[in-house]
């Protein structure tokens, strides 16, 4: 890293007010909830299980919810939600909704075809980049994890 370049501060205090990773999603908390907890909440077994090099990604609700469990872990590492595959009240659909629900985000990556990455401690959101207004920036996926 070049000298005198500050480290990326996703833990910036200005982002702290709002949602914290321990708040989880509907009672599911990364590094504390198990795959069984996910099945119980969603009332279904995984629709598919994709092998990762270092774990497994379990898909629920036709890909609307994806849970990653790393090899050897008993708890879920990350939970990814896709709003367009879920009922509208389950997860925010736009960045404006996400800002209201969770608090402030920082934009950490704009070099992706699918969208712009917004982050706050314990959460990453990929949203449409083109439209300027947050109300028009549809969320493509939202991931929660233990920072």
């Amino acid at each position: 890293m070049p000298d005198n370049v500050p480290e990326l501060q996703i833990t910036d205090q200005s982002l702290e007010p709002g949602w914290h990773w321990q708040d989880g999603w509907n009672g599911l908390i990364p590094s504390m909830s198990s795959l069984a907890d996910v099945c119980a909440l969603l009332q279904e077994e995984p629709g598919s299980a994709e092998e990762l090099a270092n774990g497994t990604a379990y898909s629920f609700l036709a890909g609307g919810v994806v849970v990653v469990v790393l090899s050897g872990d008993q708890f879920i590492t990350a939970l990814t939600l896709r709003p367009h595959k879920l009922p509208s009240d389950m997860v925010p659909a736009t960045m404006a909704d996400a800002n209201k629900a969770f608090g402030k985000f920082m934009i950490t990556d704009v070099k992706r075809r699918e969208g712009t990455i917004h982050q706050r401690p314990g959460m990453k959101v990929c949203a449409q980049a083109g439209p300027e207004q947050a109300e028009l920036q549809k969320i493509l996926w939202l991931e929660i994890f233990r920072p």
Binding site: G115, Q128, G130
Partner: peptide
């Protein structure tokens, strides 16, 4: 992206979301 020389991009959404 300011100061980056690239050829072209495909973007999932332009200003109109397309």
């Amino acid at each position: 992206h300011k100061n980056e020389r690239i050829l072209a991009f495909y973007v999932h959404s332009d200003k109109n979301g397309h």
